[in-house]
């Protein structure tokens, strides 16, 4: 097992290298530099700035320097906002995004599994229909529609929660409700559908019939025999779910004006702030890759048939 974990951890390295390299070069070969403003800078000034950020060196040198810095955990200075490090921005905004993401994914998993299981067990009853209708909404309606609509109904018309703001900035804790629900919706829907279908599949399997033939009660069969097997597809969906949460947070943070990493990301994309873009992508990738790693480990612990060769 330990060997397996170590091997998987080593497997992460090339992926991360590819990500860093790819985003570094995409950004560098792009037309339009960060210092292209409306008014042209005098040549001397431009050269000075480029020298300061080492933009005058050959691309390979820049790449090597950047890689070295990244390995030390230094994502470099921001191109746009003078005197600030990318690290500073990321550490300032990342906690907000993590809080939002963790709450959202918890909501999605908790409600998704519960309603999926209920739907499967009470197949073809109103419980089933209701939770599947909700799931279809979650799958069909993009979150940038769900977000504003929820905002319009619950914040503007009913005034139950604030329209926007963020609790770390001194606003009410209620500010987190709508963003978290919005962000959770799509993953809730997929998890609910996955849970339902894999639960139904499991309930039809031979070993559940065996358990029934033993005279076990239905609730025991579901929790002891069916649960583990039917959770496997759900666990393997968690990787894409994390990716979805990260992508979704970009929109949700924009809609609800949350000072998180996603909002920064969009801004820096518009600003062509090279180092900030690459920095944010690296942080996101590290999170994503490690989440996938953890999901893999959980999966292999759930399924005894997997061997750690």
């Amino acid at each position: 097992m330990t060997k397996y974990i170590v091997r998987r951890l080593l497997g992460i390295i090339p992926t991360l290298l590819v990500i860093i390299t790819l985003s570094f070069f995409i950004v560098r070969v792009a037309p339009g530099g960060p210092f292209d403003t409306e008014k042209a800078l005098p040549e001397v000034v431009k050269r000075n700035i480029e020298a300061k950020y080492h933009l005058d060196e050959p691309l390979v040198m820049q790449y090597g320097r950047y890689m070295f810095d990244v390995l030390r955990g230094d994502l470099g200075p921001s191109f746009r906002y003078k005197d600030w490090d990318v690290n500073f921005y990321i550490f300032q905004s990342l906690p907000n995004s993590i809080i939002l993401g963790v709450i959202a994914i918890s909501i999605a998993i908790l409600f998704g599994i519960t309603s999926g299981m209920l739907a499967a067990v009470k197949q073809n009853t109103w419980v089933d229909y209701l939770s599947m209708a909700l799931a279809v909404v979650g799958i069909s309606v993009p979150l940038f529609v769900i977000g504003p609509v929820l905002q319009y109904i619950f914040a503007m018309q009913l005034q139950w929660v604030p329209t926007s703001g963020w609790f770390t900035a001194g606003d009410s804790w209620k500010t987190i409700i709508l963003p978290a629900i919005t962000l959770a919706f799509a993953d809730f829907a997929t998890i609910a559908r996955l849970t339902r279908s894999s639960m139904l599949d499991t309930l039809r399997s031979d070993y559940i019939r065996t358990a029934k033939a033993k005279g076990m009660r239905t609730s025991l069969i579901i929790f002891k025999h069916a649960m583990k097997g039917s959770m496997l597809p759900v666990v393997s969906y968690l990787g894409p779910a994390f990716a979805g949460i990260i992508t979704g947070s970009v929109v949700v943070e924009t809609v609800f004006r949350i000072p998180g990493l996603g909002k920064f990301f969009v801004q820096s994309s518009f600003n062509r702030d090279y180092t900030l873009i690459v920095g944010v992508v690296i942080v996101y990738s590290v999170i994503l890759v490690f989440m996938n790693f953890i999901v893999d480990i959980i999966y292999s612990m759930l399924d005894p048939r997997i061997t750690y060769k």
Binding site: S205, D206, Y207, G215, H225, K228, L302, D303
Partner: peptide, 25 residues
């Protein structure tokens, strides 16, 4: 009452031993 009979009074062996045992337990 049925549960009292299943497994206790009447028990069954199924066709496919590969799938009739729970692979996760």
């Amino acid at each position: 009452e049925l549960r009292h009979i299943r497994g206790n009074m009447i028990s069954m062996i199924f066709q496919d031993p590969m799938t009739s045992l729970n692979p996760f337990l």
